[in-house]
């Protein structure tokens, strides 16, 4: 079956907030170990898709498969147990909790204590600044450090797919560089990554495949490198270069 390699597969997925439908017939696949991005303008439904793919929002139609299994009606903990982690937009750290505790919260559903400690050290290796700040409150970190902490928290669940909503939004270029290096490290360990990024150029450079979402529909899908050269994409999302 062609879906056996797919970690996440959405088929004609529909989603709505109340009566307002946001996603229409979205079909999207992330294979194991693959790095994929979703680009599109504000309100295109990118974050909504991630909310569906982590169980925060129920789907109203179509299918959502994780490892080939239907996830209809599943709650966030079910998605986490199937190794999908969500790094939400705006980082959403626990402000009055230490960096270390924030990271450990990522392992909330796990019980393998020795392994968790090892994974914590692994996060500190990827983000050395977090090791320095381990006893500081999450709310006292800079934007870039908060994003590192949020990604680190995501890794602490040992995901096979890490979904990151707005990696670089509001961050300094230097911080973004560090984050990108970290993502490549995470990627090398075999974790698939689904990235939402408003900096389209960076997103297409970083990933293998890309989906363009517009007003809740997938209007284009393909190899990132090819898309980066597509005049229509350049016109619509990169401005005049």
């Amino acid at each position: 079956m062609s879906t056996s390699a797919a970690k996440l597969h959405a088929q004609n997925l529909q989603a709505a907030y109340g009566d307002v439908q946001v996603l229409w017939d979205v079909s999207l696949t992330v294979n194991r170990g693959e790095m994929v991005c979703i680009v599109g303008s504000n309100g295109a439904g990118k974050s909504t898709f991630l909310r569906c793919a982590s169980g925060l929002l129920g789907i109203t139609g179509g299918q959502l498969l994780v490892d080939g299994e239907d996830m209809a009606g599943a709650l966030p903990d079910a998605f986490l147990r199937r190794k999908i982690a969500h790094v939400p937009e705006g980082r959403r750290l626990f402000r009055a909790m230490s960096v270390r505790d924030n990271l450990l919260m990522g392992a909330y559903l796990r019980h393998d204590k020795a392994q968790i400690r090892q994974d914590l050290e692994h996060v500190y290796e990827i983000f050395p600044i977090l090791a320095e700040r381990r006893d500081q409150y999450g709310g006292t970190l800079s934007g870039g450090e908060q994003q590192m902490c949020a990604i680190g928290r995501g890794i602490m669940s040992r995901p096979e797919l890490l979904m990151i909503d707005e990696l670089s939004l509001g961050l300094a270029p230097r911080a973004v560089e560090l984050l990108i290096i970290a993502l490549q490290t995470i990627r090398k360990s075999g974790t698939a990554i689904l990235l939402i990024e408003q900096d389209v150029m960076t997103a297409l450079e970083l990933t293998e495949r890309a989906y363009v979402l517009d007003r809740g529909r997938v209007v284009k899908a393909g190899v990132s490198a090819v898309m980066a050269d597509d005049p229509a994409i350049r016109d619509a999302y990169m401005g005049q270069l």
């Binding site: 982590s54 709650l75 966030p76 147990r81 959403r92 919260m105 909330y108 669940s157």
Partner: peptide, 17 residues
């Protein structure tokens, strides 16, 4: 509960019921 009071969205995402 303390997680919920600090950031309910994050608590949700991390699998807290």
């Amino acid at each position: 509960l303390r997680c919920i009071s600090q950031n309910e969205d994050a608590a949700d995402i991390l699998g807290i019921n």
